[in-house]
Design a protein around this nucleic acid. Sequence first.
RNA 1: GCGCCUGUAGCUCAAUUGGAUAGAGCACUAGCCUACGGAGCUAGUUGUUGUUGGUUCAAAUCCAACCAGGCGCACCA
Length: 545
Amino acid sequence: MSENIQSQIISLIKDSLVELEITDSACEELQLDIPAETRFGDLSANIAMRLSKALKKAPRDIAEGLIKSMLKRIDKTILKDYIKDIKVEGAGFINFYFSDKYLCEQLDLILKKGKEALRINLSGGRAVLIEFVSANPTGSLSVAHARQAAVGDCLANVLDFLGFKVKREYYLNDEGNQINILGKSVELRINELIGEKIEFPENYYQGEYICDIAKLAKEKKIKTEDLGDFAANFILNIIKKELVDFGVRFDTWYSQKELGKSGKINKAFEYLKSKDLLYEQEGALWFKSSSFGDDKDRVVVKSDGSQTYLAPDIAYHDDKYRRGFDWLINLWGPDHHGYINRLKASVAAFGRDPKTLEIVIVQLASIFRNGVPVQMSTRRGEFITLREVLDEVGVDAARFFFLMRRTSSHLDFDLEVAKKQNAENPVYYVQYAHARIASILRNGEFKLDKDADLSLLKEKEELNLIKKILQFSYIMNVCLATQDPYMITVYLQELSECFHKFYDLHRVLTDDLALTQSRLVLIEGVRITIATGLDLLGISKPEKM
RNA sequence: GCGCCUGUAGCUCAAUUGGAUAGAGCACUAGCCUACGGAGCUAGUUGUUGUUGGUUCAAAUCCAACCAGGCGCACCA
């Protein structure tokens, strides 16, 4: 749906409100919705209902008055050719009906400009940094990380499509407690290899991979004090490979160790001290986060002199802004939600608007096999990994399934369903539509003619298909507003359904040359839209299956 | 105890961020191949939206309380 026609309609309504001398706060935020059902038109305004109380008039009467005023003026505007009808329906909705001419022009635009016609710039020139996954380099990526990777990558694609300057970043926790324990875990396994009898503590890393790293470290004669770094580096390379194989790339890998060396943490502390936001108590150094909405103040330097995780994080997020980003998006697992307030407090402490830091909590995914939950235990190192899911169902199905549900909702991922090649599996349903169109376009007889007469498209299914295509930009708006790309998967299933229905009722390739050419244009428009959506999801768009 | 998330058809989930008769798929039943890909389509059945109040012209959606499930609540990361 072009932004243009929406704003045209909104100014038409506004002019009518002025003419009728209606003023109310409700008039300020005029908004158009896409009705749930096509029989209620193509765009709908609820302004009459919202004005009802203030004006002490029935919504339908207000709507009638507005429509009368609009119809009087519409001939002088560009909408004359694009709006077929304006009707009051239901409780007082004002429904706008597109003309066939409008639909044809929009389809024509998509054919001539390709996916560029679907693009709208909503960025306002903003630069956004999306930080996601950021898993500690102490083991393979889990399915929880996998979902974060899929959501973050897709969200970045969407924001990029909408004109934002987007960078993807992985914060690398390459020093501290976890790395020390990792090093000690490897050290113990080496001792075991030498033949010593060991007791392996429960909080050490249990996985088989620790033994593999121990063997390698022993061969390479890595010094004991370097074992942590060696293991972390080794595992990081595994993680990088897993992400590449999942189709997720990062622009920057931000090392915590480097951050520590840079002196930026001390500088951040100095700033906070100058604002009187740090104080000592019981031998520890505290950040006055409660002054900025946190439940209580937080320790940044422990009484033993070491830093908590918050210390580098404060400097890290200050640094993100200093690098020129005006919007930060962090994707976190649900176990970190208690951390949101203190980090936002740190942003506010530097005089920045905490709203420019968006924390997206990505809920967990549960893995099922034929409806039976697959048990996971991170402690024993026996969890299902991204690698296992990829090996079993492939990139396309894995990405689609991780993106199929609202990000804030739990997700049930059934490995057997993801492998099925039928209608139960939505990724195949969508890809099948794309392949089917590609197959028709490949026919040896008719070529795509960009100047086809689109006014021949008159069937209900044909017009519905165009209308569905035009909803694409609306979906983009919702993804931006919610910072959640999942709706693309829902939309693509709906668009594919519209296509399959059309396909079943109407032949594309017929004896009627003109009609054939217009229908070829129609399905190419559908193909471009599906392809654009699949690109955003990071899923292949097969010509054949 | 406090905080966050969730609760919609037998199952998995939608519902255009407060709109019109709450919709899809699976499953079940009955149909559609001398047709561009049947990996598809058509028709039928399925509801006290966890409960009770409140706000609103309008509530699955917002607010309050309660019920049930998940996850947090460190001088761990």
